[in-house]
Nucleic acid binder design. Structure first.
Length: 260
DNA sequence: ATGGTTGACTTTCAA
């Protein structure tokens, strides 16, 4: 089974690109972020025509996450618990039945957090605290769980082209990286780092200043696996070539092959 | 070079 995460930067602008990718990469489960669409306007029929079940948690203009799955959804949970006042659509969980038992998959879009002197940075850190608390509850189930998404966190210096330029940025601040490590320390495996220590394996290149041409990228899209999921990991592919397509997203898909 | 690009959407904001 192939499980993918991809920040598509707008489903309306990216629909043809996403359809082409689904046909070529053929994930069994695709976790998408930044759909930038409300649920009522999401072009679900185009994706259903390719054989996917579609569940979304959208909002107007910004954010929004989705899960496409060849397996039917047994259960769908929208929104990260822990703050009833949080109206940003950044979290959706799907529960599936596989031939090897239950599988839980989350598509998450973690807040960017910049600028760090605004309320956006504490919102990011608070969101990470809530994710940590939610994830620890799920770990107690001892089930395969994949936390897939755009974490907006550069975990290590080797995950960016030039660490010096990221000093002080919300994606690289010690608080952000520390919260990401706490999640890992709770018992989640960074899928890519489980299979390779290769530096300069990026998942995002800014549209500006020729970042793609200069390979000035960062690794911020991650698949975090519970022990039961990590034990079924076979390989991970960062589909870098997708960044070179016409009308690309600024992120590329990260795809895990898993034994389900 | 204090810039640069893209998307959603009114006018700038978010990234």
């Amino acid at each position: 089974m192939k499980i993918a995460t991809w920040n598509i930067n707008g489903v309306k602008a990216r629909i043809d690109t996403v359809l082409s990718w689904l046909e070529q990469s053929a994930p069994d489960i695709a976790c998408l972020q930044e759909i930038k669409s409300v649920d009522e306007n999401f072009p679900r029929e185009a994706f259903e025509a390719l054989g996917y079940n579609v569940e979304t948690n959208g909002q107007k203009g910004f954010n929004g996450v989705a899960i496409f799955s060849r397996l039917p959804f047994d259960e769908v949970n929208r929104g990260l618990p822990g703050d009833d006042d949080d109206e940003q659509a950044r979290f959706i969980e799907g529960v599936f039945s596989t031939s090897n038992g239950v599988l839980r998959v989350v598509s998450l879009y973690l807040p960017n957090g910049n600028p760090v002197d605004s309320d956006k940075f504490p919102y990011k850190l608070g969101w990470m605290d809530r994710l940590d608390a939610w994830a620890r509850e799920r770990l107690a189930l001892e089930e395969p769980l994949v936390l897939a998404g755009d974490y907006n966190v550069i975990p290590m210096p080797g995950d960016c082209h030039d660490p010096a330029v990221w000093e002080g940025d919300a994606l690289y601040r010690p608080e952000s990286r520390g919260a990401f490590r706490r999640l890992a320390n709770a018992g989640f495996t960074d899928a890519l780092r489980a299979v390779t220590d290769a530096p300069e394996t990026y998942t995002f290149w800014d549209y500006q200043a020729g970042a793609w041409q200069k390979n000035n990228g960062i690794r911020i899209d991650h698949l975090m696996l519970s022990p039961e999921a990590a034990n079924r990991l076979e390989s991970v592919d960062v589909e870098k070539h997708v960044r070179g397509w016409e009308k690309p997203s600024d992120h590329v898909p990260v795809v895990a092959q898993m034994a389900f």
